[in-house]
């Protein structure tokens, strides 16, 4: 791998990792505050992408970047208020099942409105140029923009959590769940707000990721399990853990795509060119596997490794 591929992969890895963190942070906040693992989180991400697509056709990309997340956040708040709150009495399993059902219905609703094929969500013209050129290869401005937006939100979230009263209580409740009661009478309202804000964060991620990833009905199902891997690997309820795990998964997946080597190539270096057939067909399979194919598998392998060696996660305190 040349230095050019390396540096672009690093950039893309950070970008993808930040995007994942945008999602994982909302998921973690909701989980820590409310004890609810929101299965519909990735669905809100997808709704954000579709809203972003639909709105940018009418009001332009940048207004859509504001309006779409607000709408998604509103939907999230409604889901909390009229759904989640009512199933609370059925316990965690009830809540899990409910958000699972919501995810299912959202995926169907998306298809109902926009159909099953991918949408042509284009990079806005204002950002459709090359930001800089490195080693003779251009890097698109939209990616830089995505990175900037993610970093801004990251910074804003950090400020919110360290500078405001509600933020401080939210942060404290990450490690001390009983702190939630410090919120006094407003607990239900704060829950609704946290759920709404978490969903809105997912919505923003959706709008900025929509043009880059493909805006299609399967995008939630594709990214949802990865998010859960990140949350478990990072340590349940740990924002910093989620951050590290997001970047880790971001890098793993980008580098896997960039490296185009197969097992056979590795052996080829030692002059072994054909798969030894006596080891059976399974070995022949492995022989022809290349790194790009392994990419999607690695996050889940990481999950298994963490479960084996550090079940509480990278930064896990809450067992």
């Amino acid at each position: 791998m040349g230095i050019d591929v390396l540096s672009f992969s690093i950039l893309n890895g950070i970008l993808y990792g930040m995007l994942l963190f945008l999602l994982a942070s909302g998921l973690t906040l909701i989980f820590s505050m409310m004890g609810v693992l929101n299965f519909a989180h990735a669905s809100f991400f997808m709704v954000g992408a579709y809203f972003g697509y639909a709105l940018s056709g009418r009001i332009g990309f940048f207004p859509a970047l504001i309006v779409a997340p607000v709408l998604v956040g509103g939907i999230g708040a409604l889901v909390e208020r009229y759904g989640l709150r009512r199933v609370h009495k059925f316990g965690h399993i009830g809540e899990l099942l409910f958000t699972f059902g919501v995810a299912f219905v959202i995926e169907e609703a998306i298809q109902m409105v926009w159909g099953r094929s991918p949408q042509n969500f284009e990079v806005p013209a204002a950002l459709d140029f090359t930001a800089f050129t490195l080693f003779g290869t251009g890097y698109p401005a939209f990616r830089v923009f995505m990175l900037v937006v993610s970093l801004l939100i990251f910074g804003g979230l950090a400020l919110l959590l360290t500078r405001t009263r509600v933020g401080l209580v939210v942060k404290a409740s990450l490690t001390h769940p009983e702190m939630v009661s410090m919120l006094g009478h407003n607990v239900p309202l704060v829950f609704m707000a946290v759920f709404g804000v978490g969903s809105a964060l997912a919505g923003i991620a959706g709008v900025i990721a929509g043009p880059l990833l493909v805006t299609q009905p399967s995008m939630a199902a594709a990214i949802g399990p990865i998010l859960f891997v990140i949350v478990v690997v990072g340590g349940l309820g740990s924002l910093s853990g989620a951050f590290i795990a997001s970047l880790l998964v971001g890098f793993i997946q980008t580098f896997a795509v960039a490296i185009n080597t197969s097992v056979a190539d590795v052996f080829g270096l030692f002059g072994i060119d054909t798969a030894p057939t006596f080891l059976g067909p399974l070995f022949t399979d492995i022989w022809s596997v290349n790194v790009a194919q392994i990419g999607p598998v690695v996050p889940y392998l990481l999950l298994v490794l963490i479960l084996l060696f550090k079940p509480s996660g990278l930064i896990g305190k809450r067992a």
């Binding site: 989980f31 693992l37 965690h92 399993i93 899990l96 399990p225 859960f228 891997v229 949350v231 478990v232 349940l236 598998v297 889940y300 392998l301 999950l303 298994v304 479960l307 067992a319």
Partner: peptide, 16 residues
């Protein structure tokens, strides 16, 4: 663990 971790992990393992 049961509950949510179990749900997430089973999802992860099956995706694996």
């Amino acid at each position: 663990r049961g509950g949510m971790p179990f749900a997430m992990i089973t999802l992860g393992l099956s995706e694996l």
